[in-house]
């Protein structure tokens, strides 16, 4: 068994993983424009990931092109940046959610106050 064949199993596992994740992510629903942009990015991301799984030397090539020693390092840096972006968007979403909960809770309390005031 040569090296290419040994890697076949992990390649299949990773490809299936990326396909499932992509399918799940495209199903989430929010603003139509946003959703379209996210889907395009997602497809590009999935294609890039698949390409890298099939031909790992692509990452190493890109890393050298960008002045980073190894492909794994480039991947790690990319992951770190992606994680911070994720945190930022979720922090914003969380604050929005908190505001909505506050408004909802207040509206309920004020409605209760109006009702008891009338009776």
């Amino acid at each position: 068994m040569d090296i290419q064949d040994q890697q076949l199993v992990i390649k299949i596992v990773l490809l299936v993983g990326v396909t499932v994740a992509t399918a799940l992510l495209t199903r989430s629903s929010s603003g139509a424009r946003h959703q379209a942009i996210r889907r395009v990015l997602l497809v590009l991301f999935a294609a890039a990931t698949a390409a890298v799984i099939v031909a790992p030397q692509l990452v190493s090539g890109l890393a050298r092109l960008m002045g980073v020693g190894r492909g794994t390092d480039l991947l790690l840096y990319g992951l770190a940046v992606a994680f911070v972006c994720f945190l930022a968007t979720y922090y914003g979403r969380m604050r929005m959610l908190n505001r909505q909960i506050t408004n909802l809770t207040r509206a309920l309390a004020l409605a209760e106050g109006r009702r008891t005031g009338e009776s």
Binding site: T102, T105, R106, L108, A109, L110, E112, G113, G117
Partner: peptide, 26 residues
């Protein structure tokens, strides 16, 4: 007292704002 209830704990600032908004309708 008149009592308004927040369905969940939001904090003193939120409670104060709710109280102010109700008092302004009295």
């Amino acid at each position: 007292s008149i009592v308004l209830r927040h369905a969940t704990n939001l904090g003193q600032g939120a409670a104060l704002q709710t109280a102010i908004e109700h008092a302004l309708t009295l």
